Amino acid sequence: MLREATTDDVHLMLSWRNQETNREVSKTSHVITAQEHARWWAATREDPTRRLLTYLRDGVPCGAVTFFDLRLDGPRTGSWGFYLDADGLAARGETLSAWLEVMREAVDHAFDELALDRLDGEVLGHNTVVRQMNRRFRFVEGTARREVSDGREIILIPISLERANRRRR
């Protein structure tokens, strides 16, 4: 289940985002400080083009889904990303099922709640598992580009999913 993120969720999100598994597949790979995270949270809450949701699994918060760059007039588009409590889910043997569930719920939210026509995102080139999962959900990859982030060269691959192409349950 997805719900709006609350102030109580913020410390959990920071701990999940700083897990090594999540940093390895993120555009910014450094450990995020409490101050940096607080600035991000304040900006996110005030930005009308953003939505931050908490993913609950059996009632327990274990992930964050963010929608950003929302354009809700004209063609309705937006970008998204997510990360999970990788360590906690792995310890419970729930990683794959949670991953599938959060992706389904995020795509449903984008098209059913936000009424987007197209959902965009990015994935790191080396993140083959997520790229494979994105294809399963019918995301289409664009042309890769190189970028420097946190002092490392990364390959970013844009992805998009049109409303008409989404996989229905």
Rank of each mutant, 00 (worst) to 15 (best):
T21M: 04
V140F: 02
H37R: 10
L72A: 13
L116N: 05
I154H: 12
V123Y: 05
G142C: 04
V130D: 02
I159R: 06
T95V: 09
T7A: 10
G93V: 08
N18L: 00
T95N: 01
V129R: 15
I157D: 01
G81H: 04
H30S: 10
C62A: 06
H30I: 09
M103K: 10
E153T: 14
D120G: 06
V148Q: 08
P61I: 05
T49V: 01
R3Q: 05
E147P: 01
A106S: 15
V130N: 04
W99R: 12
D87E: 15
V123E: 00
A90K: 15
D150T: 09
M103V: 15
R166D: 02
G121K: 06
V129S: 12
Q35V: 07
G74P: 00
G121T: 06
L124H: 12
W41A: 12
T44E: 03
E94D: 11
T95S: 09
E20P: 05
S149R: 11
A144M: 01
V148E: 12
G151H: 10
C62G: 07
P61G: 04
I154Y: 08
E101H: 14
A98F: 02
N165Q: 12
L56A: 11
R135M: 01
L53N: 01
L100Q: 14
A90L: 03
L100Y: 15
F139C: 02
T143S: 06
D8K: 13
W80K: 08
A34Y: 07
E122L: 15
L2H: 08
A144S: 05
M13D: 00
R71L: 06
A38G: 04
L72D: 11
G74V: 11
A64I: 04
D108K: 12
V25G: 07
L96T: 15
L52H: 07
A115S: 14
I32D: 00
T128S: 09
R76M: 01
G88A: 06
V123Q: 03
N127H: 15
S149M: 08
R76A: 08
R167N: 01
E36H: 14
C62Q: 03
Y83T: 07
R104E: 03
T54F: 02
G74A: 09
R45W: 00
E147D: 05
A42Y: 07
A42H: 14
I154V: 15
E141P: 03
L56I: 10
G59D: 00
R57D: 02
S97Y: 01
H30F: 13
V60Y: 09
L89A: 06
A38F: 03
T77F: 07
N127W: 02
H30L: 07
L2S: 08
M103D: 09
L116W: 10
A164P: 00
H37M: 04
M1I: 12
R118M: 12
T6K: 13
L70S: 07
H30E: 10
T6V: 05
R104H: 13
D8E: 14
H126F: 05
M1P: 11
A38I: 02
